[in-house]
Amino acid sequence: MSLTKRIEALDRRWIFLLMLLAMSFPLIVHITLPLRVTPEGRGFYESIEKLQSGDIVYLASDYDPGGKAELDPMLLAALDHLFRKNVKIVGATLWPAGSPLLERAYNAVAPKYNKTYGVDYVHLGFKEGKENVMVQLGKSIREVFPTDYYGTKLDSLPLMHSGLNGTPIDKLNDTKLLVNISIGYPGTREWVQQVRSRFNLPMVSGCAAVSAPEYYPYVQSGQLAGLLGGLAGAAEYEQMIDRPGWGVTGMAAQSLAHVTIALLIVLGNVMYFWNRRKGASRS
């Protein structure tokens, strides 16, 4: 068998090894690359930057451990940014396995800013019902979540009474911004369709890279004030808030992985056409 045919029929384990090397090398030698800020990422940052101290946001953390690598850096950076600006957070998830991830993120960031549970942030937990839950939250948070993730009644949490002049927080409209970190269904698309337009609540989204192209129409129409797409989005956001984390660290690895895949596509095609031309000339 000729060399070009052997390359075309390359065992996939060699490709796996190549990918492993491409992704692990930048992590081992700590390569960092300069990052570019996109207008969509800038929109996400500025929407949070515009919030005032004491404002409240609703944080919809809609992902499970499958999306952890891409979305954890975004969630951690968003929490850091919100706590730094002294913004209060009401968080929940519509994904069954999402609650512990939100709890871990809170526990990782809140102590850094001396934030107190129930006063500065709340974790409502998980509720099944997808779009129905979204619409119900727009009407009454207490109807959907009578208690928080820890079983505490919402009325006994000071944050839930910290609206204007001490009024209770009971609707999504009692918050200033909807921050959605999502990996699929239910996620950004459903929040835009069910809540953004219906309750006229400004919204930003951080999503998996594979979903980002679907949400560009919502950015251009102004329904999403900002969008972070995948690890690249997390990295640019981390750079904007001057808090380098896993997003920035992972970008070098992702860069090399993307280049490797692009080169593999080119190489596969070159070998394919080369072998086909050789076969045709022989016959």
Partner: peptide
């Protein structure tokens, strides 16, 4: 959840990178 489910689930998702690379090389013909 943290020691079993999270690593297993993240691994399943992470493996996609390897399969995408392999599929791109083998199947993405112009």
């Amino acid at each position: 959840y943290n020691r079993v489910y999270v690593p297993l689930s993240a691994t399943m998702y992470g493996l996609l990178a390897f399969y995408i690379a392999s599929a791109a090389f083998r199947a993405f013909r112009v």
